[in-house]
Design a protein around this nucleic acid. Sequence first.
DNA 1: ATGATTGGATAGTTGCACTCTCCAAAGCGG
DNA 2: CCGCTTTGGAGAGTGCAACTATCCAATCAT
Lengths: 215, 215
Amino acid sequence: MRLAELSERSGVSAATIKYYLREGLLPPGRRITATQAEYDEEHLRRLRLVRALIQVGRVPVSSAKEVLTALRDEELGWSERLGTAVWSLPHGPAPDDADPVTASARRTADELLEHLGWSHRGGDGVAPVAPPYEMLVTAITTLARLGYPCSAADLEPYARGMERLAVDDLDLVERYAPEEQVEAAVALTVLYEPVLLGLRRLAQGEEARRRFAGQ
Amino acid sequence: MRLAELSERSGVSAATIKYYLREGLLPPGRRITATQAEYDEEHLRRLRLVRALIQVGRVPVSSAKEVLTALRDEELGWSERLGTAVWSLPHGPAPDDADPVTASARRTADELLEHLGWSHRGGDGVAPVAPPYEMLVTAITTLARLGYPCSAADLEPYARGMERLAVDDLDLVERYAPEEQVEAAVALTVLYEPVLLGLRRLAQGEEARRRFAGQ
DNA sequence: ATGATTGGATAGTTGCACTCTCCAAAGCGG
DNA sequence: CCGCTTTGGAGAGTGCAACTATCCAATCAT
């Protein structure tokens, strides 16, 4: 199919598709002549994934590129690809280690993870600290600075909850054929986030209604 | 204290504080003379909340203003203030109701919420549909379009998980004095989101490592 | 043959979140 | 009292991200 048809079938404007091609978010089409290229179903699929990551997952274009590059990287195995993709996701401002509040938050996070038996550092050697861990530290620091300190004990039920959901997440991923699993894992990681946050806000509304009925 | 001191104590540049004052995110200081104003601890506290919402919670400035306005609105009761504040939070693109996939997603969401016994529509009368519900519908639609359909049954464990966490959330809020609870609820809703997402990504990493150890 | 279409390159637009510059009034040290 | 600095407000300017519009030569459809 031509770029115009790709545009029509995806609902993404031709100009935007050209932009994504330039930025390397989509691989170039198969060149037919000097001025024309042909796109296939795989391009359509990838374009839809890009739009989903950007619009629903709020992933910046540059990070989306990294995520997609990791997905396609034939050099890496299953878990490296997934790891690289997830680490490319946005994770907010880095913690400021000069700040004593950050140091305390880091201790809280370490205590929590140790208690849970999670290894938050990458595989072997001098692996960098995982972005999700940094994200956690930043959030705990910010809460503490605002006067809402949370201890490892406060966080444990949240961690246990996420631990249970991770089992469901991986079960869901295993429904798919092995060669589809990495993409499925990324899509489910990112696109279940709004599902989770939406359900959480609804659940809070329910619980608040239950407790403070007539106020 | 003067604006300069507010800046120093919060770590926010004076120019940015002026910008927030202009945008109405911070109430004006108490005017001392025609060209000087005095700020107090309450301003400092609010400024820190603004920064936390914007930087860690990824809330746009304009939404942060709505959230803060709702928090301060003396006209409203406890739950209206909290509801208005949470509804002002970003919730992604609205679902496209012309699309049949959206209609199907909406049925899935309705089925789930009915099964759970949650009331996703506001209080009385012709209340608008809750933004978190719309957020959920958009996410389910996007997943379906990408070839990752999820049924009400798939979503139930996630909803149950969030239901349990909402209880903990509200317990945490009730630690604070009644007049502090609305702000605490907003801060915890928004700032626990990175905590939750960070823990989820870490938990997925753990679970993936457990299942696919040597790949 | 000829008018429309295609894909690539370049430049322009929009929105957001600041950031800079200016300025008159105020404070302050001698 | 007099320079010198500081203050807060207003408006314009900046940088970045994500598009969007314009051009253009090659090509395709009739």
